[in-house]
Design a protein around this nucleic acid. Structure first.
Lengths: 136, 136
DNA sequence: TTCTTCATGTAAATAGTTACATGATTCT
DNA sequence: AGAATCATGTAACTATTTACATGAAGAA
């Protein structure tokens, strides 16, 4: 079984939720998964073709007028792959959090500056949450 | 001012906490910052040279016997760069969290499976916290 | 003597971003 | 007519991991 990258899984998951074009996936991920796992066109289009080759998604052409358009949908194999990923309790899951990294280095600051640091993280959380609520 | 990558900042921060060799940085980061921002030798050694070139760290040779050994320490410019980073309240800070990504796709599971998913995240948190406490 | 740790590095591969090119359709 | 959106893609660059090479020093 080919091991997918987290980005591949994010894309697969979005297709599993609903059949979509690469353009859709970019738009949706920009307003949802972006907050914990982003994806760019440079990933999305090549990855969709890899997933198709692996039999996890299938594509059909659904042009709108003269504009070509490929809609991807999940296959049974893809559905199983997503489920396996979501239910896997064993493997370690990647985390990167620059905000936590900054908190780790708090000793490099004066006491009142540490407060500023914590406050700025809090503000950032609040803004992100508000923005998330707005676009969802 | 050259814009540093988060990895460069992680390395700079570790040097700022204490003068260290590239080997030290790898060891320390493996038992601390790894949980929110990892670094590999392939990043560390080239990055230390870049930071040195940028004047943010300085190196001196401190061989042990016949073993060559370069100890890096922070410069005033480096100290300022770290402080600016830690106190910057404006810029967005990168997050990647595969665990959150999985929770996002919960609708692809049955109700009882969602519970398993949440439980596995919880277990993972507890194990990570326990391990962190152990090595710190 | 053999295993582990200290120590520095690189080559190759994979992952991911940024910026661009292209063109149709829809909205103002 | 002009701007925004829909739609697909790639080239070049940057970031990151993995696996290897090398060898001294110290511990068992």
């Amino acid at each position: 079984m080919s091991t997918l990258t987290p980005t591949a899984r994010a894309i697969l998951g979005l297709v599993a939720l609903e059949a979509r074009t690469g353009y859709d996936i970019k738009r949706i991920s920009d307003s949802s998964t972006r907050f914990f796992w982003g994806a760019s066109y440079g990933q999305i289009y090549p990855e969709l073709r890899r997933l198709e080759k692996a039999g996890l998604v299938e594509a059909r052409d659904e042009p709108r007028g003269r504009v070509r358009r490929r809609v991807y949908s999940i296959t049974p194999a893809g559905q199983q792959a997503v489920r396996e990923w979501l239910l896997d309790a064993e493997t370690a899951f990647e985390i990167r959090d620059e905000g936590l990294l900054r908190l780790f280095f708090r000793d490099l600051l004066e006491q009142d500056e540490v407060l500023d640091l914590v406050r700025s993280r809090r503000t950032w959380f609040e803004l992100t949450a508000a923005y998330f609520r707005e676009i969802c």
